[in-house]
Design a protein around this nucleic acid. Structure first.
Length: 916
RNA sequence: GCGGAGGUUGCCGAGCCAGGUUAAAGGCGACAGACUCAAGAUCUGUUUCCGUAGGGGUUCGCCGGUUCGAAUCCGGCCCUCCGCACCA
């Protein structure tokens, strides 16, 4: 199908507003949504899968007679847009290249691209540009979206709505403030996200939680940071860096010493501490230190293994369980390893074993030491047990003991939490990334019991595609805890009761599908009132606000009434379609926020989860350099071909491999379809082959029935195979049966085009009009004619005949004579009787003269069928077909068994090849 | 580790939940034939091995078990992949 034809159909659909959905109380409604796209770039073939499948379902429901609403909006909240424009402003080369690539999809003129890149220094321009491109891409894909209800998350009305939502969460006590560690840049004075960090997208930075153990000396205490607090019982000494600078600070009347860099870090994590003085290493080295956990004095030694910039620059040494410490302590006379963790099947100390295994000779073998460290860390954590030196922790697994000991230490102020980045990281502007603790971070508290209970109830009532998702959802609900819901920067809605915070982008997009049903009314109201206030939204959404007329006037009240009517009609969402990565975040919040804020009759009904599209095994993404834009695919192959590929290549839930070659073959099939459709249709006086016609129609009714059954179950792939591939095959098969392709086509044209319209809407619509049918295929419906008994019979007959043909072919392929004719001899009544008696075990009833045949029947038992009384009829009906298929004349006969030779049995005719 | 998915015939990928009609759908690739001057496209057939009559042998990660019978059920082992959070 040519691009220009698709474009003109697309224009027709838009001009006719055929997908604009209005309230229609006579038709059942179907409200289907998909998460709106984030408008920081163009969409690729991976994104397209979710939107396409959603459209296929929307269109299918429409031809099933539902009043379907499939709306779309645009997401622009969060930090990426801001970060990108900043980076463009900073002249960062790779991000400019990325955007140049995006733009070159649509624009040829390099000067124009340069101008746009310049405009992108303002994030709003990025958002506007791509919202526009994405929506035109979607139209090009033939999505049956109702565009009259679009909005963006930056719009005033949207923000009024999100404010309302957060007010509700607040009223219900679901928002809390507490301290929280975040990645932070001191130089920039704010929190940083993945997009702000150099290589943050490819080499992720996470926050590690260290335990800062306090060791008391006479003058001051040392804080040693560790990831393995459970090894405390094996401590032999402490280490400091020979080159580090140490400082002291005081807190609650105590003096603590850490490295200079350690202090910088801690000062971001503990309130109100300040440096008191520098502390020389000598001062530290001459002291002894103690912890209440272990009854011994600990000396401090210098070691170049200590990096003053990691943790606190103070390390407690456990040579029994740390490779570094073991290697470091080797030269020290009075120190020997203490073993506090037992490994199954090993009596020696694991450290010593690993030092030998990796061939570590000294502190210079850094790489080997790191590998060995990773191994011991993992091994001891997963399979280690605390031995008898561990006091009340003896006998525990390492994993449990770590948790318990850490809690014990913290509760008694014997340790403090210290956060550290998982790797050394810098922002894109080259300032250091550290971890800061913010005390007043806002959280949505998803751990509240009644809330979880509601969510479980909602999930229980919902339908999930595929089914297993339901269990994952229950698990996710149990697992979710507090979630930070606001940040200090980024685009979005400000928290209504604390305007310094911007609601984070996953939290502002949970119950927004509701807006699709009322957006235009809210816009009107806002023109009058200046803001869509809480009372108005209460009135519309919950039916509770009162005094709207008194406060805002009659017009607002009537708009609000209309809005409520629309909401009541459309809500809840019948089906939400999203991709796998959204499962444990967006979908979870989507369900939970519905349960928190909205009444039960507005909770979601069903969810379909769609697998990712991957290319050569890895996720499609700009950073991987393996993107194919949706626009280019549609342009090169046509939207229909892409849609066909998405529908037929893999089932929705599974991961789909993106292969250009396969697209090529889908394209061929699609062209074959178009070629068939282009043929002139047969006139009314056409001469139909009766057998061919009967079989073809029976088969088509069966295909249609299968198609509908499969689609109802969201098995889009098999439905596509049935209605597209199988019917195409049937058309070829029909011609073998003497029914011409155009004759066959004319019998099914109408229903076939309607049934195909969800999958390949452009072609369906085009040939619908070409066929002279009224209105649009997309708005018509299938005749729901199920196959009847006669249909079943003829389909069964054809299968039987095909088996006979295949048998005949096998014989023909092995014989050496030149075949001239094939005799097919069907079992007569006598044979049937004998076979039945043998199978029923009534051997005694078989006449003596036939007893000799019993072994033969037993041998053929697996082929004999007693439910094909029409054998002879079938062979006769399909005689020409059989003959044509094997390329030889066919003679048909019926015979009773002959005890001297091979025989025909029911379901298994005798095939005799005659030749020379 | 926690949670989840999976290892099928050259490749991709169904089937396995409700064991027999499964040598195992479909697609791709390959081979042969038809059409064509030819190539491509399209169509027909073949594509585990053996076989001069529709037959037989060996197959569904590995080992073992249940059963008259297992790709399908059970146990153990090996291996692969995905999510694990504040990031859209």
């Amino acid at each position: 199908m040519e691009d220009s034809i698709e474009r003109s159909l697309e224009r027709g659909w838009n001009a006719g507003k055929i997908f604009v959905a209005d309230i229609n109380s006579r038709a059942r409604k179907f409200f289907i949504t998909v998460p709106y796209p984030y408008v920081n770039g163009s969409l690729h073939v991976g994104h397209g899968k979710t939107y396409t499948l959603t459209d296929v379902i929307a269109r299918y429901m429409r031809i099933q007679g539902f009043n379907v609403l499939y709306p779309m909006a645009f997401h622009q909240s969060g930090t990426p847009l801001i970060a990108y424009s900043q980076r463009i402003r900073a002249g960062e080369k790779n991000i400019i290249k990325t955007y140049r690539d995006y733009l070159s999809i649509y624009i040829d003129n390099p000067n124009q691209i340069d101008q746009l890149i310049h405009d992108f220094e303002d994030p709003k321009n990025i958002a506007d540009f791509f919202a526009d491109k994405i929506s035109s891409d979607f139209r090009r894909m033939g999505y049956s979206i109702d565009w009259t209800r679009s909005f963006a998350s930056g719009e005033d009305v949207y923000q009024d709505f999100v404010e309302w939502q957060f007010q509700k969460l607040m009223e219900k006590g679901l928002l809390v403030q507490k301290s929280y560690p975040v990645l932070y840049s001191v130089e920039d004075g704010n929190a940083v996200g993945e997009d702000d960090i150099k290589d943050g997208d490819t080499d992720k930075v996470t926050i590690d939680e260290y335990t800062g153990l306090i060791f008391h000396g006479k003058k001051f205490s040392l804080i040693a940071a560790t990831l393995r607090p459970e090894t405390i019982f094996g401590v032999t000494n402490l280490w400091v860096s020979p080159s580090g600078e140490y400082v002291s600070f005081s807190k609650d009347g105590m003096n603590y010493v850490v490295s200079e860099e350690g202090f910088e870090k801690i000062s971001l994590q503990i309130r109100n501490i300040s440096k008191t003085r520098k502390v020389s290493r000598e001062e530290i080295l001459e002291e002894k230190f103690r912890t209440e956990m272990v009854d011994r004095d600990l000396s401090v030694f210098e070691s170049e293994l200590v990096d003053p910039s990691v943790g606190t620059g103070v390390v407690f040494s456990v040579p029994g369980h740390s490779i570094w410490d073991y290697v470091g302590a080797k030269s020290l006379k009075n120190i020997s390893p203490i073993k506090v963790i037992e490994m199954p099947g090993r009596s020696d100390i694991t450290v010593e074993y690993l030092v030998k295994k990796y061939g570590i000779t000294g502190t210079g073998d850094r790489e080997k030491i790191d590998q060995a460290t990773a191994e011991i860390y993992r091994e001891e954590f997963y399979s280690g047990k605390m031995n008898s030196l561990n006091g009340r922790y003896s006998g525990m697994t390492v994993a449990d003991a770590r948790e318990e000991i850490r809690k014990y230490l913290m509760d008694r102020h014997m340790a403090i939490p210290i956060y550290e980045t998982s790797r050394k990281a810098y922002t894109r502007s080259d300032s250091k990334v550290t971890v800061a603790v913010i005390d007043n971070q806002w959280f949505i508290d998803y751990s509240i019991r009644w809330w979880k209970d509601n969510a479980h109830r909602a999930v229980e009532r919902m339908k999930f595609y595929p089914d297993q998702i339901k269990k994952s959802m229950h698990d996710a609900i149990e697992w979710v805890r507090e979630r930070p819901c606001a940040r200090r920067r980024g685009l979005g809605t400000k928290l209504p009761f604390d305007r310094e915070w911007v609601i984070e982008s996953l939290s502002d997009s949970t119950i927004y599908p509701l807006l699709y049903t009322v957006i235009n009314y809210l816009r009107e109201i806002r023109k009058i009132t200046g803001k869509v206030s809480t009372e108005i939204l209460d009135y519309i959404i919950l039916g509770t606000g009162t005094g709207i007329r008194e406060k805002f006037g009659k017009e607002v009240e009537s708009l609000a009434d209309s809005a409520r009517e629309s909401l009541k009609y459309w809500y809840p969402v019948d089906l939400r379609v999203t991709s796998t990565p959204h499962l444990s975040n967006h979908l979870l919040f989507y369900i939970m926020n519905h349960c928190a804020v909205l009444p039960e009759d507005m909770w979601p009904r069903s969810i379909m989860v769609v697998g990712l599209v991957v290319s050569a095994g890895s996720k499609i993404g700009k950073s991987k350099g393996n993107t194919v834009s949706l626009y280019n695919v549609a342009k090169q192959y046509s939207a229909d071909v892409y849609r066909l590929a998405i529908c037929a290549a893999a089932d929705p839930a599974s991961e789909m491999e993106w292969l250009e070659d396969e697209l090529e073959s889908f394209s061929k099939k699609y062209n074959a379809f178009c070629t068939i459709m282009e043929r002139p249709s047969a006139g009314n006086d056409s001469h139909f082959n009766e057998t061919g016609k009967m079989w073809f129609m029976a088969s088509f009714r069966k295909r249609l029935e299968d198609y509908r059954r499969l689609m109802d179950n969201m098995d889009i792939r098999n439905a596509t195979v049935s209605i597209f591939y199988e019917v195409m095959n049937d058309l070829r098969e029909a011609s073998k049966l003497g029914l011409g392709e155009s004759e066959a086509l004319s019998l099914i044209r109408r229903n076939w085009l309607v049934a195909l319209s969800p999958i390949i809407p452009f072609a369906s619509e085009y040939y619908w009009k070409a066929g002279g049918f009224p209105s649009n295929a997309s708005l018509s419906s299938i005749d729901p004619v199920a196959p009847d008994e006669d249909d079943q019979k003829i389909l069964y007959m054809k299968n039987y005949v095909d088996a006979v043909i295949s048998d005949a072919r096998e014989i023909l392929s092995t014989i050496r004579i030149r075949p001239m004719e094939v005799d097919i001899i069907v079992s007569g009544n006598v044979g049937h009787e004998i076979a039945k008696k043998v199978i029923d075990g009534k051997i005694a009833d078989i006449p003596h003269e036939y007893r000799a045949l019993i072994p033969q029947v037993n041998k053929m038992r697996r082929y004999i069928r007693l439910d094909v009384p029409w054998e002879h009829e079938a062979i006769n009906m399909f005689k020409d077909y059989i003959s044509g298929s094997i390329g030889l004349p066919v003679k048909i006969g019926v015979a009773d068994p002959d005890i001297r030779g091979r025989n025909a049995w029911p379901g298994r005719p005798l095939i005799n090849v005659k030749g020379e």
